[in-house]
Design a binder for these strands. Structure first.
Length: 456
RNA sequence: GUGAUUGUAGCUCAGUUGGUUAGAGCGCUGGUUUGUGGAUCCAGAGGUCGCCGGUUCGAGCCCGGUCUUUCACCCCA
């Protein structure tokens, strides 16, 4: 006998969890489709050459690699062994589990360039795997819900992303959240404006901790990272920013007046907000955060990140614009913008905020109970009749005490039990018991159907 | 990858300075004259104390390793 267990960082989803996950996924899917995105799927595993080198050194380490089939050591010589795993990896493993949905999508676009018509809008909801250390809101297997549009530089896409996020959150009843928005060009501009050109990477890593550790500590870290005292002082106007999107844009326009790329970033953001205004989208929940930085390696324009306030979970959604999605796969000049919802984290958030609807699971509406073989056979006729009408019905599959059958229905929180006994066989009716009220009545087939259809 | 932390019945947890047959609540199974569930009562089943090794006359308890849980850092959804 073996004690069952799960690999680190993975989970089972029971019926209740699946119902709740589907509740979230449906809200996301409906929105994606409403906005004209088409669903695709890609394989769980990709060639390792597709995956490596796309996520930086740390990302490569987090890739789950798949050992070659057959004798995976056959290409290894005794001289290879001391060289370590990094050098020998290509001989042992040619495939890996997907790490995100963006790179497989890029591969897909490059491979199907001739069949796709651009701009191409796709969504994709699939699990991804990371060999990370699990902790709160972090799993080794989790789902991403990506929506990307490639082949256009229109900033309408950015505006629509904000719109979609607002729509999904509204559907899920999430009210206290912030969509943080920034533009990579603004970050570049800020680094330029303080005289530390090209160092926006370390700048953001440090500034990002402002809320957590305070300005003094951030200053220390910036000094450590080789920033000039004078440059750091120039940042001060950005530390205690006025709130309000328009106010901040005005400040940044001022701050970046020496940086053409920075001004470009501000201009792009302004256009996104103009679109939103024309679309009649409110700007509450939208925060312009000039220090927001994410995945600097490939974002080139807009950057998004969504956080729900008052919960202990990290960001639940994020994304941005990239100039050249498919360049590494031999298809240059395909710009795009996309974002992703983290369902697993949204689940944790909704659970923490108690926002899941209390509705009964969409399970069986009526259980047909009986006392003996004759009742069971009578139940078979009702089963076909009810199911033909679209009533979710089940027949207790073996002869047993009524008590047991009622307990079964009770535990599954079914609304009705239909009892098939001798009296019912004689009258051709069904004794329908409402399990919530305990009331029961003898009904004909049309009466019963009407009753069951009344309930979800 | 670094540093902590957790593991005892299906679940939530007790278990004294190392000392006989490891406990509770909930849940589960069965019963209370067989056509009626949730409540009460009665009875019962269920544990190689995560796993491997060590110390000891003796280990759930001490030591080492390993796996797992949770958390912080890094990074990220």
């Amino acid at each position: 006998m073996q004690k069952p267990s799960l690999p680190k960082g993975t989970r089972d989803f029971g019926p209740l969890q699946m119902a709740r996950r589907n509740y979230i996924l449906d809200a996301i899917k409906d929105t994606f489709q409403l906005f004209g995105y088409q669903q695709i799927e890609t394989p769980s595993m990709e060639n390792l050459s597709t995956l490596t080198g796309k996520y930086g050194d740390e990302g490569d380490q987090l890739l789950f690699k798949i050992l070659n089939s057959g004798d995976f050591l056959k290409d290894l010589t005794s001289e290879d062994l001391p060289k370590g795993s990094a050098t020998n990896l290509t001989k042992l493993s040619e495939k890996g589990l997907r790490y995100d949905l963006t790179v497989p999508f890029a591969r897909y676009v490059a491979m199907n360039r001739n069949e796709l018509s651009f701009p191409f809008k796709r969504y994709q909801i699939q699990p991804v795997w990371r060999a990370d250390r699990p902790q709160k809101g972090r799993y080794r297997e989790f789902y991403q819900c990506d929506a990307d549009v490639v082949g256009t530089e229109s900033l309408l896409c950015e505006a629509e992303i904000i719109w979609m996020i607002r729509q999904v959150f509204a559907k899920l009843g999430l009210k206290d959240y912030a969509i943080k928005v920034n533009n990579r060009k603004i970050l570049t501009g800020i680094a330029e404006a303080i005289g530390e050109q090209g160092k926006e990477g370390p700048l953001c890593v440090a500034i990002d901790k402002l809320d957590k550790i305070g300005w003094e500590k951030v200053k220390e870290e910036l000094l450590q990272r080789g920033f000039e005292e004078a440059s750091i002082q120039k940042l001060l106007p950005l530390v205690n920013l006025a709130s309000g999107v328009k106010e901040r844009l005005a400040i940044l326009t001022q701050f970046l007046n020496q940086s053409s790329i920075g001004r470009q970033g501000v201009k792009e953001l302004e256009e996104v907000f103009r679109f939103l205004e024309q679309l009649g989208i409110q700007l509450d929940h939208v925060d312009f955060d000039p220090m927001l930085a994410r995945g600097l390696s490939y974002y080139t324009g807009a950057i998004f990140e969504v956080k729900v306030n008052g919960v202990s979970i990290g960001s639940v959604s994020g994304g941005g614009r990239y100039d050249n999605l498919t360049g590494v796969f031999g298809l240059p000049g395909v710009p795009g913008v996309g974002f992703s919802f983290g369902v697993d984290r949204m689940y944790d958030v909704l659970e923490e905020l108690n926002l899941f609807p209390q509705e009964r699971l969409a399970g069986t509406q009526v259980l047909l109970a009986h006392f003996d073989q004759a009742g069971l056979e009578y139940g078979l006729r009702w089963l076909t009749a009810l199911r033909a009408e679209g009533v979710r019905a089940e027949l207790y599959p073996e002869v047993s005490k009524l008590k047991k059958q009622l307990e079964y229905a009770s535990k599954k929180e079914l609304p009705f039990v239909g009892i098939c006994g001798d009296e019912e066989i004689a009258s051709g009716r069904l004794m329908v018991k409402n399990l919530t009220t305990g009331v029961q009545e003898s009904l004909t087939l049309p009466e019963a159907i009407a009753k069951f259809k009344n309930r979800p």
